[in-house]
Amino acid sequence: MTPPSASKKTVKKAAKKTARKAAAKPVAKKAAIQKTAPKRAGKPGNRSVIKIDGMNKWYGNFHVLRDINLQVYEGERIVICGPSGSGKSTLIRCINRLEAHQKGDIIVNDTELTSDLKNLETIRKDVGMVFQSFNLFPHLTVLENCTLGPIWVRKMPKAEAEALAMEYLDRVRIPEQAGKYPGQLSGGQQQRVAIARSLCMQPTIMLFDEPTSALDPEMIKEVLDTMIELANTGMTMLVVTHEMGFANKVADRVIFMDEGQIVEENDPKNFFNNPRSDRTKLFLSQILNH
């Protein structure tokens, strides 16, 4: 990693450069506005962006998700936790239909998730996802990873897509790595590129599937900081994580899952201090006292 003083300088320089570019490019301008949006005081909006109603999912005969009911409002930050195998990853993977559910409804931004390809296309443009194992494309540079979606899905001209990508790489503080391949970066840097790649599609909802679980302890912070900054811009976020500090600091609501079921839904203060369910208490005691 670069020493802090040097990286700050390059970031500033790059920021100036992209700002100049942004003035010329209408799309990049939109991104810039998003970036400078006022910090949200903490109250989510009233518009429901995700509505999950009586949703069930099976893997063959195994009932993974059982009667899930969940509403997410615009700008809300939700942390989902629970023991492994509880179905939390499967739940968020259902929201952009990497997994198909078998019963019940999922409605994202007024579009119902069905096997209809048109709906799928709309939803995937609107919903970004960050994976535990980054899943960057190893044969493409960092910049190409970021411009792929805008160019091929949003049909954006290449120069515009690159300006946009630089804007977001700047925001996750690694514009100087744009020309490198993912294999040359540290885990934390790779995950930040993955976040930038998702943001380049300018989604309204971001899903995070254990984004820090594959990282060394010293790199967890840089990724969490990036996510906190993103939360401050008012992005709707669903985060599966074991980082309870992050949940406490950022979440509007914490959801605890066990055996495919939502066991408890609470605001972070009550979730950590007065959990209502015994299973939650057990889980918290196991992860907090070691």
Partner: peptide
């Protein structure tokens, strides 16, 4: 999965 999540067909 990453390609699908970006929206590539």
């Amino acid at each position: 999965e990453a390609a699908q999540a970006i929206g590539l067909d």
